[in-house]
Design a protein around this nucleic acid. Structure first.
Lengths: 106, 106
DNA sequence: TTTATTAATAATAAAGAAATTATAAATTTT
DNA sequence: AAAATTTATAATTTCTTTATTATTAATAAA
């Protein structure tokens, strides 16, 4: 792990609204090239391309070159890590569960 | 919304590993003051205090002053937003579901 | 083969986040 | 009352992220 490729965190990847929107767009289509994704945003191609690179480092998207375009595809599998993380806190976030817990602890 | 108080995003709040560890520590106790949380980290009190402020802006923690200490408590409710966001993608991230979808689309 | 399209990378600039030290304020202990 | 404890805030520094422009390369279309 020298110069490039930082092996990006899924939590960091989904923290950015642009990247969440990219995920959403890719969920609605099998594959999309950069130039079809770009017009949905107010920034330039290069910026969108970099957001896609971050998603790719988190393994949330894959891509393949078809002719001169690079088609991006969603890979939702890494979201499982977030789901697992949340699962631990589910026991806390229900108010009824908290009340019940308080009663049991008396 | 003038000088302070930026109304922080839950996704941003949980993106940082220090803050996830704070959430985990607070899940394991009813209430904890800053000086009990700090020794679990390599940074100073001030830095931990600021991370707690970000969690508070995201409404993931509440606090109350008891004498000279400020006790922090976890409020997991805002995590629901993340759970809801993930729920949308559950239909995609199961390989069996993807295979089935491909078959149905033929 | 020239021109247009598509996209990645490098270099830079700007903005934002994270951590530190220093200071101040409030509360408890001695 | 003086000293110690606990915390918050301000000022500063450092680091990281985000976005831009410019350059290069590759493919497709004219």
């Amino acid at each position: 792990m020298n110069t490039t490729s930082q092996k990006h965190d899924v939590f960091v990847a989904i923290a950015d609204p642009t990247r969440r929107k990219l995920i959403r767009l890719l969920a609605g289509a099998e594959e999309l090239p950069l130039h079809e994704l770009t017009p949905h945003f107010q920034m330039g191609r290069t910026a969108v391309s970099k957001h896609l690179a971050i998603l790719k480092e988190a393994d949330l998207v894959t891509n393949r070159k078809i002719g001169r375009e690079t088609k991006y595809r969603l890979n939702p599998a890494p979201l499982q890590e977030v789901k697992d993380w949340l699962a631990f806190y589910e026991q806390f976030w229900n108010e009824r569960a908290i009340l019940l817990k308080n009663i049991l602890e008396e």
